[in-house]
Design a protein around this nucleic acid. Sequence first.
DNA 1: GCCATGACGGAGC
DNA 2: TGCTCCGCCATGG
Length: 118
Amino acid sequence: MSAYDVIYTIVQQIPVGKVATYGQIAELANMPGQARLVGYALYRVAPHQAVPWHRVINAKGEISQSPFRHGDDNLQRALLEQEGIQFSPSGKIRLRDYRWQPIDLHPDLTSETSYQSS
DNA sequence: GCCATGACGGAGC
DNA sequence: TGCTCCGCCATGG
């Protein structure tokens, strides 16, 4: 099993309506800090692998692009919107609201969200 | 087996 | 607030 397979497996666990960042996937894949590998892994994903690659975005909450990717950013955005994810006027996703949180954080410690002005 | 690559992240300016 | 630079390392040629 290659590192890519691990990444694909994790990406497949992202629920509909949620998104994850490359760095997040890397951590879950036990490769903290290796966000680039996640990006490269998704770059290598074949259409028949049924991996929801569109639910993976960068830490800024934006859709990353590549001249050689399979689909284009328009497609990715469309797919996400279909799943109920809203984009801010600037074309970014509110990670604070849609970030996938696979781990059950202690309710009292979730103050990480701190404050935000919508 | 070595070398360039790459959908990123985060610190620094 | 936004742009630049550097680190990280599995893959493929």
